[in-house]
């Protein structure tokens, strides 16, 4: 660990899936946790939005002395403000969640920031094992518990996956006392977002698998088996045209295209 390492963790306002209440977002909290473990209290936690937002206190309760807020009104594009700030301050590592729990939740923020800063982006990381000589050894999370080791030169942007270490408990007292420091910041309205209509999600009908199981053990196996993708086909060497045709046919078959 380098003593002078400058790590910024970006946090958003989360939303509980059941109650819809604002909360500490799970992935963002993991980003803060990772930051805390890499550089202790010196980690800088940054939010673009409203300093009065109560749920920010639950990040602060993880043991932060202060949390910086780029003041933005509700309809502003946070990624622009964050991008400005980061290019001005040039940290070594920027940690984000994979996607926000509220708002657009497009997962684009890390990409937009990496593009703006001209830095590499490592998606869905589980841990940063080591940082040495300006190079970080990162574990990237792959499906089903697999990991991929990656080496990246600083500076970089990384989005933190749910596979990363769970965030520490947020303590009320320190959360209350932490300083939330508002920085007036230019803002630009998010026009794309403004054109969206938000409505509660409708449950999509789920395709049921017919399981012909006689015993409980078989049913259990069927329920927990990883999807085999048995119907699929791997096309590696075929000409692109043929590959595209295969995808098109599948989409027709599944009724996605008509």
């Amino acid at each position: 660990m380098q003593p002078e390492l400058n790590i910024v963790a970006l946090v958003s306002v989360g939303q509980h899936p059941k109650s819809g209440r604002a909360r500490r977002a799970e992935q963002d909290a993991r980003a803060v946790e990772l930051g805390l473990r890499l550089s202790g209290e010196k980690v800088q936690v940054l939010h673009a939005g409203d300093v009065a937002e109560e749920s920010l206190r639950s990040y602060a309760g993880m043991g932060l002395k202060q949390l910086r807020v780029l003041q933005q009104s509700a309809g502003a594009d946070a990624s622009l403000a964050l991008g400005d700030y980061l290019s001005e301050h040039q940290p070594d590592i920027v940690l984000t969640g994979v996607r926000a729990e509220s708002g657009e939740s497009s997962g684009m923020t890390p990409y937009l920031l990496a593009e703006k800063l001209g830095w590499p982006l490592v998606t869905r990381i589980a841990d940063i094992a080591k940082i040495e000589n300006g190079e970080a050894e990162i574990l990237q999370a792959l499906p089903r518990g697999q990991r991929r080791a990656i080496k990246v030169r600083l500076p970089f942007v990384a989005s933190v996956d749910n596979a990363a270490e769970a965030p520490r408990q947020s303590a009320y007292g320190p959360g209350r006392r932490a300083q939330l420091e508002p920085l007036p910041w230019v803002e630009a309205a998010d026009e794309v977002r403004a054109s969206f209509d938000e409505a509660p999600a409708r449950k999509r009908p789920k395709r049921l698998k017919m399981v012909k199981a006689k015993t409980a053990a078989e049913r259990f196996k069927a329920a927990t088996a990883k999807s085999q993708g048995g119907g699929g086909r791997i096309m590696k060497d075929e000409p692109p045209r043929e590959q595209a045709q295969a995808i098109f046919d599948l989409l027709l078959e599944e009724g996605v295209l008509r």
């Binding site: 059941k18 209440r21 909360r23 993880m62 043991g63 520490r168 408990q169 947020s170 303590a171």
Partner: peptide, 23 residues
Amino acid sequence: LTLEKGNTPGKGAEVLDNLIATD
């Protein structure tokens, strides 16, 4: 331990988070 240290053992933290978010 809970309010200052954030050190509730076992499932404590999870239960408290749930109480805060879902009552």
